[in-house]
Design a protein around this nucleic acid. Structure first.
Ligand code: SF4
Ligand code: SF4
Lengths: 156, 156
DNA sequence: GTTATTTAGCACTCATACAGTGCTCTTTCA
DNA sequence: TGAAAGAGCACTGTATGAGTGCTAAATAAC
């Protein structure tokens, strides 16, 4: 359906929250959930995955919890998605499970291009960008990836 | 999983095939399937949907089938996807079913931006572009939607 | 060192969307 | 009149997504 999963969204919300905390301090799942209102256990699963991927780090016991490990400016959206729901493959032939039509498929190249462009968008957005957008500082990016611009080039 | 459904892919393959036929002639599902190797009934469903959406037109009876109705140059990828699997909504809060977190969500704006950019990519690609890419005419679009370019603007 | 707190690990269940199929009806041409 | 082809309807199986329960291991405080 070409939609982000809740795992990704919960993960991003939690990361945005963690990134806004005082650097170095640990925040427990309990507290994060009390702010976000997400299902407790599910967010725990998500944070565990992010921890294993070294995006955040954890400490157990009283006063324990999670804190950022990768700077928000260096954490791309595609990275988060890849951790939480697997690698982004708009075209199934690019994924490991492949596609039965690869031999005869005439749209393969075209779809691959589209997939690549979408991948670039996801690669280009960092957690910092996501957070910043919510703070009113709406960046101007409308002249980028103009809907029609690539046609002008390719037809020539 | 952020992936195109088979409906969309089958649809695009069929459209690419139809667009390559002699203008005006009708091609039956039977014949299309014999070339593409897709499940017969499923492709029929897909083409029916495309027909109802006025993208292709159909004639029944012997010698009947489908032919293009919307020119390949005017048929965007997002249009095809919308017909075959519903409107593209990378962020669920933008869709009709909404999201429970909209009130407190800090990533809403950021995600909306990402979703918008992805939507633009899909809007910008036409069936003609998809077909053309397979014909060796690989357009240069690498300097578009540069992964880092929007950061430079937004930080300033 | 016992206890409370908190993450780690494991293994499920339930809901939804995707993929694919069967059968009948209507239209159309020979 | 009969064969060909799309239109309509309703259904089944499978995969993925969403969410939960329980136990073990680590850590800090008492
Ligand atoms: S592009 Fe062609 S080959 Fe690649 S997944 Fe889609 S259908 Fe299969
Ligand atoms: S962005 Fe925030 S509000 Fe929109 S869908 Fe994702 S979580 Fe819900």
């Amino acid at each position: 359906m070409l939609r982000l999963t809740k795992r990704s969204e919960y993960g991003l919300m939690a990361l945005a929250f963690l990134a806004a905390q005082e650097p170095g301090v640990y925040t427990s799942v309990r507290e994060i959930v009390s702010r976000l209102g997400t299902p407790r256990r599910l967010l725990a699963e998500v944070l565990k995955a992010l921890s294993q991927a070294k995006v955040v780090e954890a400490t157990r016991g009283p006063g324990g919890g999670y804190r950022m490990r990768t700077p928000a400016e260096e954490l791309s959206l595609s990275r988060v998605i890849a951790i939480l729901e697997g690698p982004v493959n708009v075209a199934r032939c690019a994924s490991e499970d492949g596609c039965d039509f690869q031999e005869i498929c005439t749209i393969q190249e075209g779809i691959a291009q589209v997939a690549d462009r979408i991948k670039r968008v996801l690669d280009g957005y960092t957690l910092a960008d996501i957070v910043r957008a919510g703070s009113g500082a709406a960046p101007v990016l409308d002249q980028l990836s103009d809907p029609a611009s690539h046609q002008d080039r390719s037809v020539a």
